[in-house]
Amino acid sequence: MEAIEQPGSQETVVQAKVFPSITLALLVLSVACTWLWKAFPGEVSRWLYATDFEFWHGEKLWSLFTSLFLHVDFLHLAFNCYWVWRLGRVLEQEVSRPQYAALILVTTLFGSLAEFAVSAQTGAGMSGMLYGLFGYMLVERGRRPVFRRVLDSNTIALLLGWLVLCFWLTHRRSMPVANFAHVGGLVAGMLCGFAASGRKFRKVALAGLCGMLLGCVAPLFWAPWHDNWHYVQALDALKMHIKRSFQGPGFSGVLSPAPAAARMDGPGGGGSQNPAEGL
């Protein structure tokens, strides 16, 4: 049991502690999946991670969520696990389990979609979700004293500073970071906080989430700013031409599709099986 002081009064409310089972499950699954990914990279990627080619063909859409459990190295894993445990277990005690699970799913989805829109990769790791939890608690800390104790001014400065530093490190090519997964998760988490707070702009927050969803989902179907998207369109047109040639009269040859080696991977084209790091 835990005594919590209510703001503006001398009363305390005795609140039963909730075992942070969802938060603990996130950590255990991340450790297990990352270890398996390092041991069996091809098999694990086949199930938990998708390339831009697969997304643009409507395949493995679940990896928008499952890439959450994959981390690039031990430091990446340890850093994310520390902050998810520090923030997540507090949040899991303050909101209902369904609300907490929904927040995890929403922030993970928006983090993956935002990163895919910019880099044609979802990135890897819990950082998009982590910044979503941070954003939610940042908005709600005004009416939840326990959030203020966890998110003091130093912690807020540290997490926001790391967000900015990661952009600089990526720009300098010192460390590839899924920066827009951080931003997408943070914005989604803050909007969820405003939507849950019952404030007068709750409808605006919900409208913002809907608009953000539409904007982030669109690149799964139409992304002409990515070179690989044009390659996918050309390859699909070539396959359709071959199929129609087989079916039509007077066919005298087969057009060979472009070799797989022609595909453009890397920062400009995406599609790499080595996703950018998260937090």
Score class of each variant (00 low, 15 high):
225 W>N: 10
90 V>L: 15
274 N>G: 12
57 H>Q: 09
122 T>P: 03
3 A>T: 14
65 F>L: 09
77 L>S: 06
155 T>C: 12
173 R>F: 00
250 G>V: 01
126 M>N: 06
115 E>H: 13
112 S>Q: 05
206 L>M: 06
152 D>E: 10
229 W>V: 13
1 M>L: 11
75 L>I: 03
103 L>D: 02
13 V>R: 15
152 D>I: 04
33 C>E: 14
79 F>Y: 04
37 W>F: 11
60 K>R: 14
159 L>H: 12
203 K>E: 03
264 M>G: 01
245 S>M: 07
272 S>N: 08
116 F>I: 00
74 F>L: 14
235 L>K: 11
186 L>H: 09
134 F>S: 11
153 S>I: 08
207 A>T: 05
54 E>M: 04
185 G>H: 01
237 A>P: 02
7 P>Y: 09
170 T>W: 02
76 H>A: 10
3 A>P: 08
110 F>H: 03
238 L>A: 13
190 M>D: 05
58 G>Q: 07
188 A>K: 00
56 W>Q: 11
202 R>F: 00
249 P>W: 13
106 V>I: 14
105 L>H: 00
224 P>N: 12
185 G>I: 01
2 E>K: 14
164 V>S: 02
172 R>W: 03
215 G>L: 12
184 G>W: 09
245 S>K: 01
99 Q>L: 14
13 V>I: 12
197 S>R: 12
141 R>K: 15
178 A>P: 08
59 E>Q: 14
274 N>I: 07
129 M>Q: 01
56 W>F: 05
231 Y>R: 00
235 L>S: 14
209 L>T: 03
207 A>I: 08
143 R>K: 15
140 E>T: 08
155 T>I: 13
163 L>Q: 14
10 Q>L: 15
43 E>Y: 08
39 A>C: 06
185 G>S: 02
277 E>D: 05
135 G>H: 11
121 Q>G: 02
